[in-house]
Simulated scan of single mutants.
Amino acid sequence: MTADETTITAYPDGPLIVRGAVMYRNEAGEEIRQPRRTVALCRCGVSAIKPWCDGTHKLIGFSTTPELPGE
Rank of each mutant, 00 (worst) to 15 (best):
T38Q: 02
A10I: 06
S47R: 03
E31D: 15
R19D: 10
R36I: 04
T38L: 02
I60G: 00
C53K: 00
I8K: 06
E71S: 13
W52Q: 01
P69W: 08
E31V: 08
T65Q: 08
A3E: 11
T2K: 03
T38P: 01
I60N: 09
E71L: 05
T56M: 01
R19L: 05
D4K: 07
S63W: 04
E71H: 05
A21H: 08
T64D: 02
T38Y: 01
R25N: 07
G55K: 04
C53R: 00
G70Y: 08
M1L: 15
T64Y: 00
R19M: 02
G55L: 04
E30G: 09
W52P: 02
T7L: 13
M1R: 13
G20S: 11
H57Y: 08
E30I: 04
I32Q: 09
G61N: 03
R36T: 06
R43F: 05
T38M: 10
E30H: 09
H57W: 14
N26D: 15
A28W: 04
P69D: 13
D54M: 05
P12D: 14
L16D: 06
M23W: 07
P35I: 09
D54T: 11
T9V: 13
T2D: 14
R43K: 01
R37C: 00
Y24P: 05
T2F: 07
H57K: 10
I8N: 04
L16S: 10
I32R: 06
R37G: 02
A10E: 14
P15L: 11
P69L: 11
L41M: 15
P35N: 03
D54S: 01
R25K: 15
R37D: 06
R43M: 10
S47V: 12
G45A: 11
Y11V: 15
G20R: 11
C44Y: 06
V46W: 00
R19G: 09
I32P: 12
C53A: 05
G61V: 10
T7D: 05
I49V: 15
Y11I: 14
L59C: 01
D4Y: 13
Y24H: 15
G55A: 04
T7C: 02
S47M: 04
T38V: 13
P35G: 03
T2P: 11
V46P: 00
M1H: 12
T6R: 14
D54L: 14
W52T: 07
W52A: 08
I60A: 01
V46L: 02
E67T: 11
A28T: 10
S47Q: 02
T64R: 02
D54G: 04
A40G: 12
G55P: 02
V46A: 07
R25E: 15
T65W: 01
P12E: 08
T56R: 11
E5T: 14
R19V: 10
V18R: 09
A10L: 07
H57M: 09
T7H: 13
D13N: 13
C44N: 05
V18S: 15
T38A: 07
V22Y: 12
G29M: 03
I49E: 07
W52K: 02
E27C: 01
I60M: 07
T38C: 05
E5G: 14
H57E: 04
A48T: 14
C42W: 11
C44K: 00
G14Q: 14
G14R: 13
R36H: 01
I8W: 13
P69F: 15
E30P: 08
C53G: 10
A21Q: 13
